[in-house]
């Protein structure tokens, strides 16, 4: 953002200089060619800055694949060109009209004067200006995509590092093994099922370390598996409910739902009379994870303050361009995760 600020200041200064030149030219000074050039270059610069900022949002919301970005780029460029030409002609005409008013010139035939006399002369400088702003446009797009890639790589590194640290996830493993050890005595078959599920959980995490997006149905299966493991320990104290519309066309960031569910389990108390219900609701391009807030009285030296969610938010933003949304009120906590159609 800072760079854009400097850019706009420079442009503003140039604009002032050009307007002064314009006035001087009209006074009859022989700055004709140069001032015209400056005026139009500046107009185009202003226009391109305005339009680039406007299009920044469109570019940021571009889909993940570079192919799709490439497809959008060409029509976007033409929209940009058209808007720039229009805007700069408008600014030029307005500036000239203002000058006419200041000078007290006759404004009755202004439009004809504009079209017949000014525009033909303006053409060449305008063309030069368009060339320059095209370069600006592509440079800006290129910069953005590099920055975005850099950020994504960084966040992925952070995630991989965290994942690596917790790949074995001692906390989760410790709890699972304790539960497992009792299962072995109680029910060998159940114990074996438990082991299979546990292995599959780690398998999923390992397999999808490098994957950016995964089919929603797979992530849901994974979350259900993870929850089944937890249920072995917590029984009827916890419950997972699902309201899914249509999972087939959608993809999601891997391990995202699990992080949210794990977070809910970590921070809420549960009992058999008052079970903790976690509800997955999918509608349209979003999946939402609700849970009733059940404040947990626990030891203060407890858990890290949901840094998993913060990292998840960043990964979602950088990979999909959309935002994860957390809504918290008195009774409910919900996390809304955007889905991608590809």
């Amino acid at each position: 953002m800072k760079k854009n600020h400097i850019f706009s200041y420079i442009v503003a200064i140039l604009f002032c200089i050009s307007f002064t030149s314009f006035v001087l030219w009209h006074e009859g000074q022989d700055l004709f060619d140069i001032s015209f050039l400056i005026i139009n270059l500046t107009n185009v610069a202003v226009a391109s800055m305005v339009v680039t900022i406007f299009h920044k949002t469109l570019l940021y919301n571009a889909a993940l694949s570079t192919a799709q970005l490439r497809r959008k780029l060409v029509p976007l460029f033409f929209v940009f060109l058209f808007s720039v030409i229009l805007l700069s002609l408008l600014i030029f005409s307005l500036g000239l009209y203002l000058l006419f008013l200041i000078k007290g010139y006759d404004t009755s035939g202004f439009l004809e004067h504009l079209i017949q006399k000014e525009f033909p002369v303006v053409f060449t400088p305008l063309a030069i200006g368009i060339l320059v702003s095209s370069i600006v446009f592509f440079y800006h797009t290129w910069r953005q995509s590099i920055d975005r890639e850099q950020q994504l790589r960084e966040e992925n590194l952070i995630y991989q590092y965290r994942n690596l640290k917790s790949r074995v996830n001692p906390h989760f493993l410790f709890n699972s093994l304790n539960t497992l050890s009792e299962l072995i005595y109680a029910d060998t078959q159940k114990a074996d099922n438990y082991i299979q599920k546990l292995a599959r959980t780690y398998r999923y995490i390992l397999d999808n370390e490098e994957t950016a997006l995964i089919p929603l149905s797979e992530e849901i299966t994974f979350v259900t598996q993870y929850f089944d493991l937890q249920k072995e320990r917590d029984g009827d104290k916890i419950r997972l409910e699902m309201q899914l519309e249509q999972t087939a066309p959608y993809k999601i960031i891997p391990v995202s739902l699990q992080i949210v569910v794990e977070n809910a389990l970590k921070h809420n108390a549960a009992s058999e009379d008052n079970p903790l219900v976690i509800r997955l609701h999918q509608a349209g391009g979003y999946i939402e994870v609700f849970n009733t807030i059940r404040k947990k009285h626990s030891l203060p030296a407890g858990h890290s303050p949901g840094t998993g969610l913060v990292n998840l938010r960043e990964r979602i933003r950088l990979t999909t361009g959309k935002e994860m949304r957390i809504v918290r009120d008195e009774h409910t906590f919900s996390v809304k995760i955007p889905l991608i159609t590809m």
Partner: peptide
């Protein structure tokens, strides 16, 4: 003890 498997284990031991 609030966890069933843990209490079962304690009893067994």
């Amino acid at each position: 003890e609030d966890e069933a498997p843990a209490s079962a284990r304690l009893i067994r031991l």
